[in-house]
């Protein structure tokens, strides 16, 4: 694996290798000394064109625990409005000798362009590009589901429902492909206004109310997506936050309709009271906080396989 850009291209064996490696990484994090020497001498750049403190510190922690040198490069704003272009930034990082670039960008495709533009030689790890993909988020989601429901196995026979703004969600896009590759059935739950036109080839079902999803499927994991308030008011994607909550929100009643073993997930940050009630977020079924911890292990695995994978294989 040279880059990690999208889950669509990830084979089942690659995905399982990342998850297995993440399991090993997680085990090392139980030790007293959590730092591994694996990536000593390697430089990892966190290149963030969009604010995301959570994702950045997760990658930073992952890289540091592998003993890599970490440079945080915050390049806010678009290349049109201000600052230097993606190309110039890439050339700068190349000149500084980045072995891996973790990139978060507001533009769909920016990670792909960095990897294929011929501007830099290091590995590119997509930490979220526009409304396209966020592979490590879906890997940590898969890791979390697997840990609870299918230790050591794949996700065959499990059903995962993803609820919310699918149209603008890189988390949904990443998960649809990855979870399906791992054998799970994916159900998207969203108002028709937030389902992309052209979704037909996606390997998943689509329903338009959470109740319908709860009635129709035996859901093993329920993933609530963050809904941005501005999509309701200015965007006109649906009438009001209240109506959204009523039809798509996970409240106590709906929580109790899930099977006993079902997991409640959220990529964060949550809008409590909008897409998820406090009761659901804080319930024993919620693995939301654990997802954050698992994120570090998965990102360690991804960095390790990108940067040390070939050496390790020899």
């Amino acid at each position: 694996m040279r880059h990690l850009l999208t889950t669509k291209d990830l084979s089942k064996s690659d995905a399982l290798r990342i998850l297995d490696t993440a399991t090993q990484m997680a085990a090392t994090q139980e030790r007293e000394v959590r730092k591994l020497p694996t990536l000593r001498g390697k430089t990892v750049v966190n290149l963030f064109f969009e604010d995301s403190t959570r994702t950045r510190i997760s990658f930073e922690a992952a890289a540091k625990r592998l003993s890599a040198d970490v440079i945080n490069f915050s390049a806010k704003g678009s290349s049109v409005s201000k600052g230097e272009s993606l190309k110039d930034t890439a050339l700068t990082l190349q000149a500084m000798g980045a072995d891996a670039v973790v990139v978060r960008h507001w533009a769909s495709g920016a990670a792909y362009q960095l990897a294929h533009g011929g501007w830099l030689h290091g590995s590119v790890l997509n930490a979220g590009d526009g409304t396209h993909q966020h592979p490590t988020q879906s890997l940590l989601d898969a890791f979390t589901i697997r840990k609870h429901l299918a230790p050591g196995g794949d996700l065959s026979g499990f059903t995962v429902a993803i609820v919310g703004d699918v149209l603008h969600s890189r988390v949904a896009r990443s998960n649809v492909y990855l979870l399906t590759t791992l054998g799970a059935k994916v159900v998207l739950v969203a108002p028709p206004t937030l389902v992309p036109v052209g979704i037909e080839p996606w390997p998943c079902d689509v329903v338009h109310t959470l109740d319908q999803a709860l009635d129709t499927y035996e859901i093993d994991a329920l993933m609530m997506l963050r809904v941005q308030r501005e999509r309701m008011t200015g965007g006109g994607f649906f009438p009001s936050p209240n109506e959204y909550s009523r039809i798509f929100g996970l409240d106590g009643d709906r929580l109790r309709r899930l099977p006993d073993h079902a997991l409640v997930m959220h990529p964060g940050p949550m809008n409590r009271g909008l897409e998820i009630s406090a009761e659901a977020a804080d319930s024993p079924r919620s693995v939301i906080v654990e997802q954050v911890a698992n994120g570090v292990a998965v990102r360690m695995a991804a960095l390790y396989l990108l940067l040390a994978g070939e050496e390790a294989a020899q």
């Binding site: 396209h132 992309p196 036109v197």
Partner: peptide, 15 residues
């Protein structure tokens, strides 16, 4: 163009 490719690529569609 708004269609299957834009849906996958996450680029806003021009219907």
């Amino acid at each position: 163009h708004e269609g299957e490719v834009s849906a996958e690529l996450g680029l806003a569609g021009w219907p």
